[in-house]
Design a protein around this nucleic acid. Structure first.
Lengths: 99, 99
DNA sequence: TATAATATTGTCAAAAACAGACAAGTCAAA
DNA sequence: TTTGACTTGTCTGTTTTTGACAATATTATA
């Protein structure tokens, strides 16, 4: 699940309108709409505000937000999978899933 | 190994000067120096030129170049590993390394 | 159906980030 | 101490991103 879908489902579960979340983030409704649809990227600060607002664990939203950016980076790339594994090995060598 | 180190080692193995690679890429030597040191990012086009120049398989250099960008994205991130795994699962679901 | 509220899309100017270019610096070898 | 290779710093023009607003579309409800 991409970041936009995630916050959309959180919002709908809470029975809130975009306007209310947008106000919380101090952005206008069109901007928030674009974040939900994935045509604009949320700022890190917005993610943290949403974590507090929806009372989530930071990792739950941050990891999806980061994944989103990686997906955007690799989605048209032929060698994305190799790149991902190399990055994983470099950053988190103690995890042996990267081979 | 990061992208800059990689092309530096390829260059040194070939016994060439930065000036020669820079000319090939049609950039000046300071710019190329910065790419080797990782303070500037190579363009995709540069990577492809280097693949031809050093007669490499495209995947060998492209995957490192992509990994570099992922590393820059995640290196200060607390939840980078989770993000990486989520992205992997989303992009390449048939590979089960992402759990 | 009419209308009101919600949500989406399009556009544009301002701001931020980035690339290219050059000058000036360091460093090592001769 | 001079030369050549490399690095660092800075400036400017370009590209990209952002925020704001207008306009349109969609949905809910009277």
């Amino acid at each position: 699940m991409r970041f936009g879908e995630k916050i959309k489902s959180l919002r709908e579960q809470s029975g809130l309108f975009q306007r209310e979340i947008a106000a919380e983030l101090k952005i206008d409704t069109p901007m928030y709409s674009k974040i939900e649809s994935g045509t604009r990227k949320a700022k890190r600060q917005h993610v943290l505000q949403l974590v507090k607002f929806f009372r989530l664990k930071e990792e739950e939203l941050m990891s999806i937000w980061l994944a989103d950016q990686i997906i955007d980076l690799l989605k048209e790339e032929k060698y994305g999978q190799s790149g991902l594994l190399i990055a994983g090995k470099d950053l988190y060598p103690s995890n042996n899933v990267w081979q």
